[in-house]
Nucleic acid binder design. Structure first.
Ligand SMILES: NC(=O)c1ccc[n+]([C@@H]2O[C@H](COP(=O)([O-])OP(=O)(O)OC[C@H]3O[C@@H](n4cnc5c(N)ncnc54)[C@H](O)[C@@H]3O)[C@@H](O)[C@H]2O)c1
Ligand SMILES: NC(=O)c1ccc[n+]([C@@H]2O[C@H](COP(=O)([O-])OP(=O)(O)OC[C@H]3O[C@@H](n4cnc5c(N)ncnc54)[C@H](O)[C@@H]3O)[C@@H](O)[C@H]2O)c1
Lengths: 203, 203
DNA sequence: TCTATACTGTGAAATAATTCACTTAAAAAC
DNA sequence: GTTTTTAAGTGAATTATTTCACAGTATAGA
């Protein structure tokens, strides 16, 4: 399979999530047009994307929701469960820690980390929490592949370095600074302020 | 000015944020190349973007950081302060409510809303909180332009409808469902799970 | 003051993404 | 059983975006 553009991957991820909703509504088949509508794109693009991935639908019926979900999951390696750790257990970090839906979607938060012993002692959660000093060990022991950064911006780069050194493969960064990561590490920013800026620019 | 692509706007928003960091470091001028590096794009694209916006740099020096920030702010209407309201004051919503950096960046959270009287009574925050029943009134009174959705997915569409009816111009949605909004309303999803999926697909 | 340099700014070229137009095929309707 | 309809699949055309190449120039340094 030729490698996919970021745009395609992004759309497929959205479709993947959208299929959940369809399954809940017990919808068995969905056309490229309806899919496009639910996603804010065009039927052509949806068909091209799916066709690029080599998944296929049915004339006059559309795509089999259940089957499509399975196929997309396989193609994008979304079926295997991934373990994640959160660094920075402040307001945002603890909210993420307790967000149960991640697990449902195949992303299990298996550890939280903070530098403040005080914080670690006070936190009430189901998830095991550790000092950042133990990060490397815990990442290895628990096979953590994904690191989630929720520390203040001043600490973000340092935490990213630590995570990469510990062997995580991907990083999701909630701090408002872009951090640099070694070649080969997948990195994504979730900058809420930028999102608001984007909206403001479009107003 | 011809209208800008989403890609360009997204990059400019990032540059805008990046310039803050440069100002803190007291860097006066920055070249398209350095800017590109800090953003994960190319110098060509940066120059094209800035040139498209009609802002201009200096031979052999690059772009004046302070001036560029001002100019980009004007071009993207990022200089005027925007008022926002958050609907859904659970784990995520309250974290957002207390996040002070929004204000620094020109987005002032002027109200929180929830449907649970119980929750409203317990919340300890500087920001005024209201019942969703008062949403329409408060949005009008406080000139709220941006709505932030942090309610459970089942309630998201309903809340979006209420916000739009109340007159907000833009919506940032943290719930994992895509909601539909009337023509003319700017809408953006912040789906953390999709972000993790994207990373997993790239691993 | 002069010169070499390191930048920008921008048309043109290359590449990528989207849209279109049309073929094919299965299901539904009659 | 035949016809009609609806939607997938896909090369080709179009459109958009990125990259390139280089002319122009203000600055730093001599
Ligand atoms: N709270 C929000 O709603 C919100 C919104 C947008 C962005 N953010 C960003 O998310 C990040 C976290 O925000 P927050 O509000 O949760 O902050 P917070 O101050 O509540 O929490 C930060 C936590 O990180 C810990 N920490 C600091 N340095 C550390 C290090 N080197 N290693 C490990 N832990 C460390 C602190 O002990 C603290 O518990 C920040 O970068 C913030 O800008 C937060
Ligand atoms: N917590 C996280 O870290 C996290 C992560 C990703 C996505 N999200 C999404 O963000 C949203 C909020 O998550 P949360 O963890 O804060 O949930 P939560 O259950 O803690 O809070 C939801 C709040 O919304 C209120 N609410 C419910 N219906 C409402 C309505 N119709 N009008 C006004 N208020 C209403 C509830 O009273 C509650 O206070 C959810 O859609 C969730 O999927 C949360």
């Amino acid at each position: 399979m030729k490698d996919l553009s970021n745009n395609t991957i992004e759309r497929i991820c959205k479709i993947f999530g959208y299929l959940d909703a369809l399954q809940k509504k017990e919808i068995g088949f969905i056309s490229s047009r309806e899919l496009a509508q639910g996603l804010g794109t065009t039927e052509y693009t949806v068909r091209k994307d799916l066709s690029t991935l080599g998944v296929t639908g049915h004339t006059r019926r559309g795509y089999d929701v259940k089957l499509l979900k399975t196929q997309l999951g396989e193609k994008l390696h979304l079926t295997q469960k991934r373990k994640a750790g959160i660094v920075g257990l402040g307001r945002l970090g603890t909210a993420l820690l307790d967000y149960e839906k991640f697990k449902v979607d195949g992303f299990e938060i298996v550890a939280g980390f903070d530098c403040s012993i005080n914080k670690l002692e006070r936190i009430r959660t189901q998830i095991d929490v550790f000092s950042v000093n133990d990060l490397k060990r815990v990442v290895a022991e628990r096979h953590i592949e994904l690191g989630i950064i929720a520390v203040p911006e001043a600490a973000a780069q340092n935490v990213a370095d630590t995570l990469c050194a510990a062997g995580v493969k991907g990083i999701l960064n909630f701090s408002p600074v872009k951090v640099t990561v070694p070649e080969g590490i997948v990195y994504l920013d979730m900058d809420f302020t930028n999102a608001l800026r984007f909206i403001a620019a479009r107003l």
